[in-house]
Amino acid sequence: MDLLSLRYFRAVARREHISRAAEELRVAQPSVSRTIARLEAELGVKLFDRHGRAIRLNRYGAAFLTRVERALDELDDARREMADAAGLDDGAVTVATETLLPLTELLAGFRAAHPGVTVRCLLSTPEVMRDQLRTREVDFCIASQPLSGPGLGAVRLLHEEVLLVVPVGHPLAVRERVTVAELAEEPFITTGTGHWQRTLLDRLFTGIGRRPVISCEGDEPGATHFLVAAGLGIGLIPALARAELPHVPLAWLHVDSPDCVRTLSLVRREDSYLSTAAARFRDMAAAHFAERPQHASMEDELRPSAGGAGRA
């Protein structure tokens, strides 16, 4: 039993598919099949149930996977720790996030401070994030909704109000506040199920026993304000984004609900090794968002945007 066999087994067990595991490992499929067969022969038990060309991890395989993941994770952590100690490179940080919009300044600042560190960003839903943390594909997840699980720890970065945005010609554009019930028939532009904007919207409407009317649904939250400004519907946007959109013709309103907020958290596996590069990123993220107002009221900021953005 060698490390290569264990890595092959882990890839097949996670995907329950020989061909996809081979693609991930960048090796030929027959090589993976032979390795799994040798491993099963050595252990004296079958690790997968086979039904034609389909395979499923059985109870022996599931028990073995738990041990294998623990062993390989420890070895990967040891490799990263030794690289840090030896100063072999400036390291790398991988971050999964639901949206890159609130991170642009942080990422730019980190790159300027640590130009030798490679930063990789992945766009993921919370469900995918949990799996990425479990498999140690990422060092951190930056989530806009609770992300919990065994061994996960979170640091709150930002707690802010989420505002309603409407086109400047909309009847609500002259309002300062609005209730959720008043929005029952309004078409919303939002993200797909699983993303924080959609989760928040569904939660607000559950509170009034209704479902929101969805006019446009997708996985690109950064396009919401453009679609709203074009008159295709209304949407929910974090208060933090308003300063970044001074010339977009929108009206911004408070929603009369204490739940209309977003909490941005930095999440990691607490049992994994924290590299020097990752520790620097964590500290910079905490310092960056500490400088921003937490859940600040926008009462004094809801004024017409430049270029005739309407009244709120």
Rank of each mutant, 00 (worst) to 15 (best):
P126Q: 02
L266K: 06
S5Y: 03
E24L: 13
G209F: 05
V267R: 00
R136G: 03
R26F: 04
R292F: 11
A21F: 04
V166W: 00
V255M: 04
M284K: 07
L266T: 07
L264I: 09
S305K: 12
V68H: 03
G209L: 05
F188K: 05
H225G: 06
R56A: 12
S19E: 13
A184Y: 09
E217R: 13
Y273A: 00
W252M: 07
Q145W: 08
V228G: 01
A285S: 01
E42R: 11
S124V: 12
P221L: 08
T224E: 13
D77N: 04
L264H: 05
A229M: 06
A312K: 14
F48H: 00
A86C: 11
V180A: 05
T135R: 15
R50L: 00
E291S: 11
D283F: 04
L157H: 01
G218Q: 11
E42C: 05
T66E: 15
R175P: 04
S144R: 07
A83D: 13
A28Y: 08
G91A: 03
A96L: 02
Y60N: 14
L88W: 12
A13T: 05
G169Y: 14
A173W: 09
L100W: 12
F226W: 14
V117N: 04
R50P: 00
A37N: 07
P171N: 01
D90S: 13
L227C: 08
L253I: 08
V162W: 01
A286N: 03
A306Y: 10
T276S: 11
R111G: 13
L236W: 03
P212K: 02
A154S: 12
P249W: 11
E186Q: 14
F48C: 00
R156M: 13
D259E: 15
L147N: 01
D300R: 14
T199K: 06
G192E: 15
L107A: 09
L250T: 00
D300F: 14
